[in-house]
Amino acid sequence: MNEILLNINNLSISSMPEHKTLVGSVSFSVRRGEPFTLIGETGCGKTLIAQALTGVLAKDLSATGSIEFDGPNLVGLSGKERRKLWGRRMFLLPQEPRLALNPTMRVIKQVSEVLRYLRGQQPKNALKNAGTLISDLGMSSSRDGRHYPFRLSGGMNQRILLAIALATPAEFIVADEPTKGLDADLRDSAVRLLQNLVEQGKTLLCITHDLAVARDLGGNIAVMYGGYIVESGPAEKVLDSPVHPYTQGLIKASPENGMEPIPEHVLSSMKTAWNSSGSRQMEACL
């Protein structure tokens, strides 16, 4: 078995008619069974990478380069072939737990449905297994499972989504901003749930702007800015002894380190460096 599950090579994403580069030649690889965190501020292109990976890029964006997922290249794959991967090989953990669950169905049913549909389990078994998954995540399958999503709290709904992620046969989970809108307490429990996914043998690509999440998850991280990866490596190394001035600035800018703004000269020097190399970056960041 190949140790590297996902290998992204020179991935660029640009908007179609204007040919404006939004993500410029990003390369990184994710090892099987390990978490990988993409970190960066809003608008740096991290979500675009997740979208290119799962194949839900907006129609007017185009990706070039290669995304090798367990061998074959995903860039330019047809919709039909993509659908074979969804849920079966990779799973995108949705951002908003409450909106991502079907409001017309009891949550245990939604978990069991995945087991039935994607794993071909019999209805009775699927319901039983769904109950096990839910109770493994610290909820009562007989009480909470019988509720509709609106009856559960955001954190509980997120656990249901994780139960669904665990129910799918997918080995690769993409979590886009899993801690968005959660307070510190819930964030910690969300991170623990993500660690749980990794412990169950899933490979995790986590996309976040929260340094604490990256630190707690461990594994490798890549720091992005303006559509480029500025620094990458093991989480502890990058976060404890950052080399790139932007990463240093980002760490100082986090609330626990005094929220010091990233120095203007760091940003402008990156800008000139990129401009002289002939590439164009995202306007949102610069």
């Binding site: 969804w86 079966r88 995108l92 949705p94 169905m105 997918a170």
Partner: peptide
């Protein structure tokens, strides 16, 4: 266009399944 339908598609459900289970009920 609701997020839970998009989530369903990305979870690997087929269009027919979603039409039957998610949309028909509405």
């Amino acid at each position: 266009s609701r997020p839970y339908v998009e989530a369903g598609v990305l979870a690997g459900f087929s269009g027919r399944f979603i039409l039957r289970k998610y949309i028909f009920i509405e």
